[in-house]
C-alpha cells in the first residue's frame, strides 16, 4: 500500500516532520516533532547521530514486543559513552525460550524494566532533532513506527543511516559477490578486524554499530574528500 507519507519522504524528512507535526495530537509526538532534523548538507562530523539497537521477542512488529533498547551518541565522530542509555521493557507476555538465548535477558531482569508506554517518551527525547543510526533499519523502524501508531496515532519519522545498507552499497559498487550473512553486524566487524563483543545486548550492539559506522565512513566517501571534511550527511542517509 502506498501511503501519502511515502510520497512525502521524497520531499525530505523535515517536510514529513512538519506534515506530521501539523496533524499530531499527542503531546509526546508534538514534542518529538517540534525540533528540526539536521540539514542534509551539513558535514557529517557536525551532526549528532544516535546509534540505536532494540532487542525484540521476534521479527514481526504486529505480534512481537520490544524487550530492551540501547543507544549511544556520536558527536564529532567520537562515540560518547557518557550518553549511553539502556532500558529494559517489561512485557505482559513471557519471552519465548529462543530469544532468551540471544538476548540473555531473563524474565527476572525484565521485571526490573518499565513499560513501553513509559519508555517511549524517553526514547523519543533521545532521538529528537537527531539522526538515527541502525544496523538493518527496517526492523527498528517497523517496531517504533508500530508503537507510535498505537500509542500516539502518528507515523514515526527520522533521518536514518543504515550501516547494513551502506555495506551493501559499497559491496555492490565494487561488484563483489556476497551473501546476506556477510552483511550481519558481527561479520562486517570481523571483516574489518574489529573486536568481537561477546555480550549481545542492545547497548553493546548500539556501540558496535556506531563503531562499525566510524569504520565505514571512508568506504562510502572517497578518502580525499574525507580529509577535506567534505563528507555530508546526505552521503550516508538511506
Amino acid at each position: 500500500m502506498i501511503r501519502l507519507t511515502h510520497i512525502y519522504q521524497l520531499l525530505g524528512k523535515n517536510f514529513v516532520r512538519q506534515r506530521l507535526l501539523s496533524k499530531a495530537s499527542s503531546p509526546v509526538m508534538q514534542h518529538f516533532l517540534s525540533k528540526a532534523f539536521p540539514d542534509k548538507k551539513k558535514f557529517i562530523d557536525e551532526v549528532v547521530i544516535v546509534s540505536l539497537d532494540i532487542e525484540t521477542t521476534g521479527l514481526d512488529p504486529d505480534k512481537d514486543k520490544i524487550v530492551s533498547i540501547g543507544l549511544v551518541e556520536i558527536r564529532h565522530l567520537g562515540i560518547k559513552l557518557q550518553s549511553c542509555w539502556h532500558q529494559i521493557i517489561q512485557t505482559k507476555k513471557n519471552i519465548p525460550e529462543q530469544s532468551i538465548v540471544i538476548h540473555q535477558i531473563t524474565d527476572d531482569q525484565i521485571k526490573t524494566g518499565i513499560s513501553i508506554e513509559q519508555a517511549m517518551p524517553l526514547l523519543l527525547e533521545h532521538l529528537k532533532g537527531k539522526v538515527m543510526l541502525v544496523h538493518n533499519a527496517k526492523l527498528e523502524l517497523g517496531f517504533i513506527n508500530k508503537i507510535c501508531q498505537v500509542l500516539y496515532a502518528s507515523d514515526f519519522v527520522i533521518p536514518v543511516i543504515d550501516t547494513q545498507a551502506l555495506a551493501r552499497r559499497s559491496l555492490d559498487r565494487r561488484n563483489s559477490a556476497y551473501n546476506t550473512s556477510d552483511l550481519r553486524l558481527f561479520n562486517l566487524r570481523c571483516a574489518r578486524h574489529m573486536p568481537a563483543y561477546k555480550a549481545h545486548n542492545a547497548l553493546m550492539d548500539a556501540i558496535a554499530t556506531a563503531e562499525l559506522f566510524l569504520a565505514m565512513l571512508n568506504d562510502i566517501v572517497p578518502r580525499c574528500e574525507m580529509d577535506k571534511g567534505k563528507a555530508r550527511l546526505a552521503d550516508f542517509l538511506s
Binding site: G78, I79, K80, L81, Q82, L214, A215
Partner: peptide, 11 residues
C-alpha cells in the same frame, strides 16, 4: 570509567 570514554576510529 566506561561512561567517561569516547570511542574513536582511525583508518
Amino acid at each position: 570509567l566506561p561512561e567517561k570514554l569516547t570511542i574513536r576510529y582511525f583508518r
